[in-house]
């Protein structure tokens, strides 16, 4: 009976599956291994933070999942189709208005012309920028740009949102507000989020699961399940305590490089 049940459940219940993924750059003889044997599953609707110091291959990993690059070995599955990607730079197109940036994403997704404008407006309102449709990118503040970038990423209607240190260039107050907005959007949608950061508190503030990568080569060092209730605050004691524990582990990983 149990055996039958196992067979009946879908084999792939995952939003992102990385299976023994290795990525190296350069010729095979003198190859520089960036990611070494990474296996990671992100469940549908899960929020996972990838944490690591420089050289851990965080961005390389996201590029692989986004399909911008191919792994050297191992396999990557994104069953829901192409993943959306947000960068540290807003990467909005400066020749378009905020609304047109979103409409272009909708157009490239194949949304019919007549529906684009209303859909772009809905997405702008989701990131609380209902009045910004006609604004040029340079007229927006750093926080507003990242929110438009988020709306543009959402316009792809992907099941998975990849975020590459999207708030790293923002001031602390703006970042705090955007954390809260991101969690609200994540709650309202069924998005799986794979969020890369080097900021331990940010990881603990946001994620259901924090995955620590070691550096050179990037390997999974440890994972933590974060069961603090949302909404959390980045300055709360619960977040701080866990951040201390993870930071100690991260420092240990970094210290290993002194001997080499």
């Amino acid at each position: 009976m149990t055996a039958l049940l196992t067979e009946a459940t879908p084999v792939v219940d995952t939003a992102v599956r990385l299976d023994h993924v290795t990525k190296s750059f350069g010729r095979s003889s003198a190859a520089h291994v960036v990611l070494d044997d990474i296996s990671l599953n992100v469940a549908p609707g899960e929020f996972v933070c990838l944490l690591g110091a420089s050289g851990c291959g965080k961005s390389t990993l996201l590029n692989l999942v986004a399909g911008l690059d191919q792994p050297t070995s191992g396999s990557i599955e994104v069953p829901g189709g192409r993943a959306a990607l947000m960068f540290q730079e807003h990467a909005l197109f400066p020749w378009l208005t905020a609304g047109q940036n979103i409409e272009l994403a909708l157009r490239l997704r194949g949304v019919p012309r007549g529906e684009r404008r209303a859909e772009a407006q809905r997405l702008l309102e989701l990131v609380r920028l209902g009045g910004a449709h006609g604004k040029r990118v340079h007229e927006l503040s750093g926080g507003m740009r990242q929110r438009v970038a988020m709306a543009r990423a959402l316009a792809q209607d992907a099941k998975v949102l990849l975020m590459d240190e999207p708030f790293a260039a923002l001031d602390a107050i703006t970042r705090d507000v955007l954390h809260e907005e991101l969690i609200q959007i994540w709650n309202e949608t069924e998005l799986s989020v794979l969020f890369v950061t080097h900021n331990v508190r940010e990881a603990v503030r946001l994620a259901q699961r924090v995955v620590l990568l070691s550096s050179r080569p990037g390997r999974i060092a440890q994972e933590w399940a974060i069961d603090l209730p949302q909404p959390r605050r980045i300055e709360s004691a619960g977040v701080a305590d866990l951040a201390v524990e993870i930071t100690d582990k991260l420092r240990g990983e970094i210290r290993r490089h002194v001997q080499h």
Partner: peptide, 9 residues
């Protein structure tokens, strides 16, 4: 911009 364009399709 080219990377962003490619992720958008």
């Amino acid at each position: 911009y080219l990377r962003a364009g490619r992720t958008l399709g």
